[in-house]
């Protein structure tokens, strides 16, 4: 199974039409990856689908970086009993 980080980068690349290999943990979704507000909603939706979790919208949308998303999703997966590769 791919790691949380790999899966987050794959989803991010799909939604924002980027190359997953070029996405770094410190990248800011808006400033570095060019995510618009509508795309951030799509990102949250696709992360939920990818990991089979439900995220609080306010908390999820306050995450700014790819690394932040990895940490946040890891935490939610643990809370919701979803198995992941860290």
């Amino acid at each position: 199974m791919a790691t949380v980080e790999e899966r987050v980068k794959t989803v991010t690349a799909q939604v924002l039409k980027l190359n997953a290999d070029e996405i770094k943990g410190e990248d800011n979704f808006t400033a570095d990856l060019g995510a618009e507000s509508v795309q951030s909603i799509e990102l949250v939706a696709m992360f939920e689908e990818e990991f089979g979790i439900e995220m609080d919208e306010d908390a999820a949308l306050s995450v700014e970086t790819v690394g932040g998303a990895v940490d946040f999703i890891t935490k939610v997966c643990r809370e919701q009993g979803v198995e992941i590769e860290e």
Partner: peptide, 16 residues
């Protein structure tokens, strides 16, 4: 619901 780009989404959530 937030209807965005042709689909119903949870959008920015109810607190917003």
């Amino acid at each position: 619901s937030w209807f965005i780009e042709g689909v119903v989404t949870k959008g920015f959530g109810r607190r917003k």
